[in-house]
Write a protein that binds this DNA or RNA. Structure first.
Lengths: 143, 143
DNA sequence: ATGGCTGCAAATAGTTTGCAATGAG
DNA sequence: CTCATTGCAAACTATTTGCAGCCAT
């Protein structure tokens, strides 16, 4: 039970529609990257995306991978995460949410907004308001 | 009402004591960096520390700045923060706490542990436990 | 004395940019 | 046809590392 041609095609078509909806001109490279990333909620680095492209036989330069991811992020199609200085992560889930991160492996998973509730939060300094809240729950193997 | 020689000396002595307490061999460069960073709770980048050293007339190579900060962090004297990919921040407050960050300026300030309370947190995946929680509240000018 | 520090410069990793060639509308 | 997009390589930034000489113990 694999992925058949119809799946690929609808995945492609959906990606194309989303690009068009954001006013992003549709090209082969952008479609390939969109269909890798936007299919399901996931967290990928630029390097992982480049690798997936190579695996699919696509020839996309690293510069184009970065340019495309930055464009997608600027248009709100994806969200860029910084978890440690090593590299940027691109999150296909743009709805507000938080993250778990496995300390050992670095693996990320989503935490739904409703699974975190604050009974107390500090008042922002005068003249400021909260723009967003980033929450990362680091996990270790229980011992 | 400036900083007089006695202040500098006691700051130095305090820094030397803290290094020794962590089993870190005391050297001029380490003392200089420690007395810049450990005097009060603050968040500095490696570049800002290098600049402060130059301003004080100290000659410390950038490599030594990094090596020293990494050593301090490994010994628990300071904590390294990653807020965006641009650079690492070194926090002299090692007690558990959270942060405000001004979106415009990037400026950081501490949020005390007691000013944040969770009434709901997600259960960690099976076999995992929470190692730590990183919380960054991004602020924008109210408008 | 001796082993840990330091400075310098070179290496590294991730990301961005300049520019000529290509492709979409 | 015209301007946006791409690929390549070079540039850049933050950080790390190798190594010869220096310094704390």
């Amino acid at each position: 039970m694999g992925i058949d041609a119809a799946d690929v095609e609808s995945n492609w078509a959906r990606a194309a529609a989303r690009l068009a909806a954001c006013g992003i001109r549709v090209t082969d490279q952008r479609l390939q990257i969109a269909s890798i990333l936007l299919g399901e909620p996931q967290h990928l680095s630029a390097e992982q995306i480049a690798e997936a492209l190579r695996r699919d036989g696509a020839r996309v330069s690293k510069a184009t991978v970065y340019n495309t991811l930055n464009l997608f992020a600027a248009r709100g199609l994806i969200r860029q995460l910084t978890l440690d200085g090593s590299c940027a992560w691109f999150d296909s889930n743009v709805a507000p949410h938080y993250h778990f991160q496995d300390e050992q492996t670095g693996a990320l998973s989503d935490v739904a907004l409703r699974d975190v509730q604050f009974s107390r939060l500090p008042a922002p300094p005068p003249g400021m308001e909260v723009a967003s809240i980033d929450l990362v729950i680091r996990l270790r193997r229980r011992g």
